[in-house]
Amino acid sequence: MKINILLFANLKEIAQQSSLQLDVPETAIVSDIIDIVKKEIPDIAPHFKSIMIAVNMIYVENSFKLNNNDEVALIPPASGG
């Protein structure tokens, strides 16, 4: 199934792209996506300690089960205001 990954702020700059599309097994959960992104963009790996994950704009745990065409956003620590 297809999963769309969104990157923001420092992550977008490190990856030099604001999104990527992954083709993953139907059984994929959030932590599987994290593992793939770490392999594809190794420079992002150290940042995962502080990244929150939102699926379709809702914060989720790493065990969250994904569905086809889900939008997975990697959210660095907020700093608005």
Binding site: H47, P76, P77, A78, S79
Partner: peptide, 26 residues
Amino acid sequence: VINRLKKDVPIWKKEFFENSASWVNS
């Protein structure tokens, strides 16, 4: 509102200095 916004809302701030720039909290 301000405490929640700063903690949870996906908005990010980049500070530009005279010779560098960095994303706050990242």
